[in-house]
Design a binder for these strands. Structure first.
Length: 765
DNA sequence: CAGTGAGCGAGCTTCCGCTTGACTT
């Protein structure tokens, strides 16, 4: 029998396809790209027409040698990597690396993992598309040149180990610029006027809440309206009814899955992708890194069956969604359940939750529109020209809403307007219960979450489904940004209330600006981003990727030559790199805050060897003092007062058992020092204000925990068994060793401990 | 784990996209 070797990118895909193809076909995976430029050096011959030097990566050597020997034995090798730029390149690299003969090599593609699609692909093979491969090569070479020339500029001018690139530097810039918008934002307030009315004079029937169709700048104006409403006769001046329909969202792509998992389940990007990977490997969902909203015919049919069965025929509506995303390559289907009828699965808690979200979204996308009746009632009086508006939505047919409601990014999403309106008629009198004027502040621009940043990047066509999560991890690891929570601030607002013919007023307090899991720039990130914008504005331009993508498309169409495109980009870019290396350090590293009244010395903030710091006294002052900036403090925004406060630490809190307690902030956060030891005091305590009693409590708790720490020791061998953060472990010298689950640490003898140390030592290698 | 805020200068760092495990904390 003829031997066929089919090579795909993912091992889970290989398993599924093997089942479809049956005997005579062996399906293997390349595990993504098998070759790349050298990790250590540039790997590009710039003088020689930008020729790349590809190497088989260390972790791919085994896969490549396996595929080589299988290919040798096979009568035909089918290169079935994804149908996009990267997939085409993988096919070509396989052909080159495995030394495949043209006569026994065929290139096939399919967008969905169904039997029909695969058999159809086998019937319609083609050759490797070299134009598309060269487009990928241009993309790869450009990214390497940008990354490996810009990063060293940062090492020289800012700090070692920093990085810059076509994607990450734009992501960083977005965060830095959004932070500036937030910082420079000044909230304006307006008075919003709301009335509660009742169609029944006894005021016993349902209350109707309505908002005045005008807002006011000042309290005086608002009060004027309320005054005119005293004793006024209100009536219904219009009733309008409108039919509206709502249409379901497309099934998930990587980006929309990340956004919804973040909003609805509170998952981080990494959590979402790890969980989705688990679902994919278990065969529960289709591939999770996709930019396509397309569903296979099979899936559409299965969705129709499932919806009809569960909710009835009138709930089913088969739709295909067009992908709007810039630069989408649509090599895969949308993310959907493998079996649409499978509403629930047996898996881990997170997996179950994410699966349910995917199922609902995919099913809802194939359901009928919801039909909504909107009623708008206007209530007016002769004494004011404005009117009060009450709106109510009534769902006439729920359609897809039966299954899925998309959430919004907007935190202050409108409250439920699903008020039930009683039967009302034009000109009917309405009786006022209360009218309230409340001072409302305008909303500051929203800081990015991981997911909303991905959404923005996708809109700009920057990055790919496989890189969204890693890109954000990279800029975090470089110390450019931090995902953080920040407490809100209190502010006062005014409220006027008209009730029973009199107006009362009061000042109330609200908390605003509380941030949870938002992305904030760090000082070093601001510095790097400003430096890049100043010197390499064309690279960190939001339209740069879109522009080069146009050239890549032309290379793919055979209208441009890849290395000519690169040469044209490289010459001015490299000149700018050389020029930037000659200029001095970035200038915005230091900011002068003013003079310290106590000492008469100047106060500065700048980035030092170990991060941002405040300094009292000029650099030539032998008595100059330093303190690190605290959490959430930025060089750009810190005030003189805040900077001076840093020098209140370390501070003596008092004595306990005749020993002094010192409170301070260290590398790992706030701590107290007592009796030669350090105790972390956590986020909830401020070292500037912590009192003696709290310190004593913390010390006692610490001493108790220390006493419980040591379970057992073998002093002669220098081995200790200790209780740690993750449970009991063995400590020998500076090394820690795991104790397997099910072993009682108290019962462990020397022999057992030594065995575990030996085992641990081996696994380390 | 809990300092530091200098500067002789070796040798190192880094990109984006495609894939999974193999690791420790």
């Amino acid at each position: 029998m003829e031997e066929n070797l089919v090579i795909v990118e993912s091992p889970a895909k290989a398993k599924t396809i093997e089942k479809f193809l049956g005997s005579g076909y062996s399906v293997k995976s390349s595990f993504g790209h098998i070759r790349d430029l050298s990790k250590k050096s540039l790997g590009i011959d710039i003088e020689g027409g930008f020729l790349p030097d590809y190497l088989v990566s260390d972790d791919k050597k085994k896969v490549v040698s396996e595929l080589k020997s299988l290919a040798k034995k096979a009568d035909m090798v089918w290169l079935a990597s994804d149908e996009d730029r990267e997939g085409e390149a993988i096919a070509w690299h396989l052909k080159e690396t495995l030394n495949l003969d043209d006569k026994k090599t065929k290139r096939i593609v399919f967008h969905e993992i169904t039997k029909t699609a695969i058999l159809n692909a086998i019937e319609n093979p083609r050759n490797v598309d070299m134009n598309l491969v060269m487009a990928q090569q241009a993309r790869r070479v450009l990214d390497r040149l940008v990354g490996f020339e810009l990063s060293p500029v940062l090492w020289r001018k800012v700090k070692p180990k920093l990085s810059a690139g076509r994607v990450q530097s734009v992501a960083l810039r977005l965060i830095v610029e959004r932070e500036r918008e937030v910082q420079s934002f000044v909230a304006k307030s307006q008075y919003k006027i709301e009335g509660i009315f009742n169609p029944d004079e006894a005021k016993t029937s349902v209350k109707i809440s309505a908002e005045l169709n005008e807002k006011f700048e000042t309290e005086k104006q608002a009060r004027g309206i309320l005054e005119k409403c005293i004793g006024a006769n209100f009536k219904i001046v219009s009733i309008e009814e409108k039919e509206a329909k709502r249409t379901p969202q497309a099934p998930f792509t990587t980006s929309t899955l990340q956004q919804e998992a973040s909003r609805k389940l509170g998952f981080s990007l990494n959590q979402t992708m790890r969980t989705a990977q688990n679902l994919y490997e278990s065969g529960f969902i289709t591939y999770m890194r996709t930019d396509s909203t397309n569903l296979s015919k099979l899936a559409l049919w299965a969705a129709r069956q499932t919806i009809t069965e569960l909710y009835g025929k009138e709930y089913s509506k088969t739709r295909q969604y067009a992908t709007k995303t810039k630069g989408a390559q649509e090599a895969h289907e949308a993310i959907r359940p493998t079996y649409m009828s499978n509403m629930e699965i047996e898996a881990g808690t997170q997996e179950k939750k994410l699966y349910s979200l995917i199922w609902k979204r995919a099913i809802a996308s194939q359901m009928a529109d919801a039909s909504i009746q909107k009623t708008e009632i206007s209530i007016g009086t002769d004494s004011i020209k404005q009117i009060f508006l009450a709106t109510a939505d009534r769902i006439k047919f729920d359609g897809f809403l039966k299954v899925y409601i998309e959430s919004k990014d907007d935190e202050s999403a409108d409250e439920d307007t699903n008020m039930l309106l009683p039967a009302l008629k034009l000109d009917w009198p309405m009786y006022m219960v209360t009218i309230k004027a409340t001072e409302k502040f305008s909303q500051k621009p929203a800081r990015y979450t991981e997911a909303s940043l991905v959404k923005k990047l996708e809109e700009l066509g920057i990055g790919r489904p496989s890189t969204y999560a890693p890109t954000i991890s990279t800029i975090s690891q470089r110390g450019y940004i931090i995902k953080d929570n920040r407490p809100g601030q209190e502010r006062q607002f005014r409220e006027l209330k008209l009730e029973k013919g009199t107006i009362t007023s009061k000042t109330l307090t609200e908390t605003w600006g509380t941030e949870k899991n938002k992305l904030f720039p760090e000082d070093i990130g601001i510095l790097v981003s400003d430096f890049l914008v100043e010197n390499f504005d064309s690279i960190v331009d939001y339209g740069f990727t879109a522009k080069v993508e146009e050239s890549f498309d032309k290379i793919a169409e055979g209208k441009l030559v890849w290395n000519e495109v690169i040469a044209q980009f490289y010459k001015p870019f490299h000149e700018k790199v050389e020029e930037t290396l000659l200029i001095s350090r970035p200038t915005n590293a230091e900011r002068s805050l003013g003079v310290d009244q106590k000492t008469g010395k100047s106060v500065f903030v700048r980035i030092g060897r170990f991060g941002p710091l405040a300094q009292i006294g000029e650099s030539d002052d032998p008595d100059k003092k330093f303190m690190s900036l605290g959490k959430g403090q930025l060089i750009e925004t810190i005030t003189l007062e805040e900077a001076l406060k840093l020098f209140d630490l370390p501070r003596s809190v008092g004595t306990y058992n005749d020993k002094e307690i010192i409170a301070a902030v260290g590398r790992f956060g706030p701590y107290i020092k007592y009796n030669g030891g350090f105790i972390s005091i956590g986020k909830d305590n401020d070292p500037r204000t912590i009192d003696l009693d709290t310190c004593k409590m913390l010390i006692d708790a610490h001493v108790k925990k220390e006493a419980e720490r040591l379970i057992k020791e073998f002093p002669k061998e220098g081995i200790e068994i200790l209780n740690g953060r993750f449970g009991a472990y063995i400590k020998k010298g500076k090394n820690n060793f795991k104790i397997p689950r099910g072993t009682d640490p108290k019962a462990l003898d020397l022999e057992g401990a030594l065995k575990l140390i030996e085992k641990g030592g081996k696994s380390k290698k």
